[in-house]
Each structure stands twice: as structure tokens, then as C-alpha cells.
Design a binder for these strands. Structure first.
Lengths: 133, 133
DNA sequence: CTTGACTCCGTACTATACTACGGTGCTTAT
DNA sequence: ATAAGCACCGTAGTATAGTACGGAGTCAAG
């Protein structure tokens, strides 16, 4: 099992060391094992977690929401019903996001087709012409 | 054609007045018509624009990216090729977002199924068990 | 024609999410 | 065993995206 110090972890995830420490401070990352030197020691599962955080952030989730997503699990403490409820809520949110991204997507495709046909459109914004949120 | 003052516009879009002024300052909204009193006057197209901004933000776009999306159009100035290129770039980004949201989606669905079967899973995080970004 | 709600503006403050700094202590390749 | 490169920590600073304030002017219902 591969082990990393914080610099390598940060590097593989494409963020910087201070950000890793920050995520630890706000409890988005668990406290890692330490060397006697107090150096933090991570493994692949930590890397996966960091990569998830990075991508989820790009997808528009706040760090708070990401924490909630990562905490979704049925364990001895959590009742199934609660987790199910929470998860269904998250699912609905994600479905709506996908739906609206698809709307934007279809407008972009139309726009690309217009470009191919060398149509010069009006002065209007094509995205707003076709999308109603 | 309906006309709104800034308060009504903000209200319909679910944001507040200061935010509308802020969006105007950073040129995300065009300068509106004014009454003699200097009151801002908006119409439905402004409302559609604000609503788009609000939702696009929720979908994880920065205000800068939203501005770029809203500026995508072929007009007398912009060359088709340039717009096509830019738009294809945005399209690729959106396709990737949808793809990754689907990954999260499928994990949530699995989790809900587990809840229904009253399975108590491990102490591990189910999202990280199944997603690799 | 008053009065309560709305709008004007600039400026200052806030929350979230980092990012930089700086002095000190490890690690590791030579 | 030394030196370049990491890591330690707390604290302070930054960028983005708002949010609040306050005194003056405007709107419109009664």
C-alpha cells in the first residue's frame, strides 16, 4: 500500500499543501496517521477522497455539501430510513442538475450547427433565446 | 411588455437588490433603461438572464464562465470559427460534468437500494468505494 | 398631499475557500 | 554529515461573490 506525505498527495490531486491542511481543519479530511516527526502520512483512499472533493467542487457542490455526500452511509449508528431520505434528496438535486446541464448542452449543440452552416444569427443571446430556467 | 423595478426583478429571481446592482457593476447584466428618477427599469428578457445566472451558478459555473456562456453568439463581429471553437470547448466541459454527475447519481441509487433492503454496510464511505475521479 | 415602501449611490463589511509567510524541524541523496 | 528540499504550525492576506448601511430622493395608495 502506497504512502504519501502531504506534498505528494497534494500534487497527485492537483491542489496545494495548504489546501490539504485546510480540508483537514474543516474536517473534510480525517486526521491522518503521523510519523514520529509529525509528518502526515496518507494512502490511496485519502487520495481518492481528495480527488472526489476536487471534482465535486467543480461540479458546483460547496465543501459543506461535499462533506454531507461523503458522510452518506448506513452504519451501526445511522438509521436506514434517515439515510434513505437524505440520499433521495441528494438524488433529486443531482437529477435536476443533469436536466439543466442538458438544456445548456442542447443549446450549445444548436449553436455549433449554426456555426457549421455559417448562419449569422441575430444580436440576441442564443442561450437565453432557448433556455427558460 | 411587463416592466419591473429592481426590487421586483430581484424578487422574481430570488436574489436581492444589491446582487442585481453587483451583477450590473461587473457587467454580467447590461445597464438597464432608467426612469427620469434614475430608477432602473427591466423587462422579461432581463429576468430570464438573471434566472439563467442564478441557475448556472448553482450548476457550478463561476460568474466569469457565465458571462462567457452568455456572450456566445455569432454576430457581425464574431467569426463563426471562433465561436464554434469556444462553444465546442464549453460543450466538452458540460458533457464531462454530466458524466461525473451520473457517476454520483448511480452510487446514490445503489445506496438507496441498500437502504430498502435494510443492508447495513461497512464503515467505509460508499461514494468513495464506487467512484474514481 | 402625506406616508410608507421603494430606490438611489458609494463604501464597508462578510462568508467561503483558499494561499502565502516565516521560522523551525525532518528526510534523504550524495 | 551536510545541504537541498519537505513538512510543521499559526496567523494573516486574497479572490470571489455577495450583503449591509445610511442618508436622500421617488412612487403610489388612500
Amino acid at each position: 500500500m502506497a504512502e504519501y506525505f502531504v506534498g505528494q498527495l497534494a500534487n497527485e490531486a492537483g491542489i496545494n499543501v495548504e489546501t490539504v491542511r485546510y480540508y483537514e481543519n474543516i474536517k473534510l479530511l480525517p486526521k491522518p496517521k503521523r510519523r514520529k516527526s509529525r509528518y502526515r502520512v496518507y494512502d490511496e483512499s485519502d487520495l481518492a477522497r481528495v480527488k472526489f472533493i476536487v471534482r465535486a467542487k467543480e461540479l458546483g457542490f460547496t465543501l459543506k455539501e461535499i462533506k454531507e455526500l461523503l458522510e452518506l452511509k448506513i452504519d451501526s449508528q445511522a438509521k436506514c430510513g434517515d439515510v434513505k431520505h437524505l440520499t433521495e434528496h441528494k438524488l433529486k438535486d443531482i437529477d435536476n442538475r443533469i436536466k439543466d446541464l442538458r438544456k445548456i448542452r442542447s443549446v450549445l449543440i444548436k449553436l455549433i450547427e449554426q456555426c457549421i452552416n455559417e448562419e449569422v444569427s441575430s444580436e440576441e443571446c442564443p442561450i437565453l433565446e432557448s433556455i427558460e430556467f
